[in-house]
């Protein structure tokens, strides 16, 4: 179970893997995620969106960015290796219907979770505009897949090395002001980016859905670690979400909660890299 069928490096820190998980492949819907562990004794449980699934192969696709110890460890797994723990699909599926004009705004790795949603929106008959943003050209991923789905594809880079030199909020604002005002905006990416997308659409009253990536432990609604303020209510991202109305989300609180373990995570990461990779490097030079 949980065997890695395929692995591919999409950019410097981003990897795509197909995992054998027939049950999850069959049940999953756009917007749902899995939780995995790279060690089921001492490992952390990390959530990753299901970027795609292939029922005939019995596989799901995950796309992840190396940001800390677990993702770094995951990147060392190879085709044929098995993951010790994988559970899903978790979270509520995205509500898909024909809204009319749908704008999908993806920031960085947010392209991965957006892929199945954009696919489903297209299939439901929407006019789909995809805006992707990356720091620089080399970090753009899934361009071919996304531009195939999109009726309109707008790439932006912070440094102007590819597409428009702009933040994603640039084209988003223009769309909101244009004749082709979106009926729905879906934004997925770093919390700050989702916050500013929501602020951009607020004056135009365009419904904006965001997909929150809070810290999680169980992913089944048991711990409350993933809680966020949405309007006047407290919601658990893993069971009530991950998608919420961006105009209601308290992003500042969420961003602050995401940083709760920053120092400790950094130390874990450093220890792991030193232990795993320096030793490996030594072994090679010897």
């Amino acid at each position: 179970m949980n065997r890695i069928l395929y692995k591919h490096q999409l950019s410097q820190d981003v990897f795509l893997m197909r995992l054998y998980a027939p049950m999850i492949a069959e049940e999953r819907l756009a917007g749902q995620f899995i939780i995995l562990q790279t060690d089921d004794n001492y490992g952390e449980r990390i959530p990753l969106t299901i970027a795609d699934a292939d029922i005939s192969e019995g596989s799901i696709t995950i796309i992840f960015q190396v940001v800390g110890k677990t993702t770094k460890h995951l990147a060392t797994f190879d085709v044929g290796d098995e993951l010790p723990a994988l559970v899903g699909p978790l979270g509520k599926p995205t509500h898909i219907e024909n809204f009319g004009r749908a704008v999908c705004v993806c920031g960085g790795i947010g392209v991965a979770p957006m892929h199945p949603i954009a696919q489903a929106l297209k299939k439901a008959g929407n006019h789909v505009t995809i805006i992707t943003g990356a720091r620089t050209k080399d970090l753009i991923i899934l361009e071919k897949e996304m531009s195939m789905i999109a009726d309109e594809y707008i790439a932006c880079t912070d440094d102007g090395s590819y597409g428009r030199k702009s933040l994603v909020t640039g084209p988003l604002k223009e769309l909101c002001e244009s004749e082709a005002k979106p009926d729905i905006v879906i934004a997925i990416g770093p919390p700050v980016m989702m916050k500013f997308c929501s602020e951009t659409t607020r004056p135009y009253n365009v419904f904006t859905q965001v997909s929150l990536n809070t810290i999680m432990v169980d992913g089944t609604g048991m711990c409350g670690g993933c809680r966020v303020n949405v309007g006047k209510e407290v919601k658990f991202v893993c069971v009530d979400g991950p998608e919420f109305d961006g105009h209601l989300v308290d992003f500042d609180n969420m961003i602050s909660r995401l940083s709760a373990y920053k120092e400790i995570e950094r130390t874990h990461y450093k220890c792991f890299v030193e232990k795993t990779f320096n030793n490996a490097a030594k072994a090679v030079t010897l």
Partner: peptide, 18 residues
């Protein structure tokens, strides 16, 4: 929702299970 507020479930799960 401040950092440092935990449900007992989360606190104990992090320690016992994880």
């Amino acid at each position: 929702n401040l950092n440092g507020v935990f449900s007992a479930n989360e606190y104990l799960t992090r320690i016992n299970l994880m």
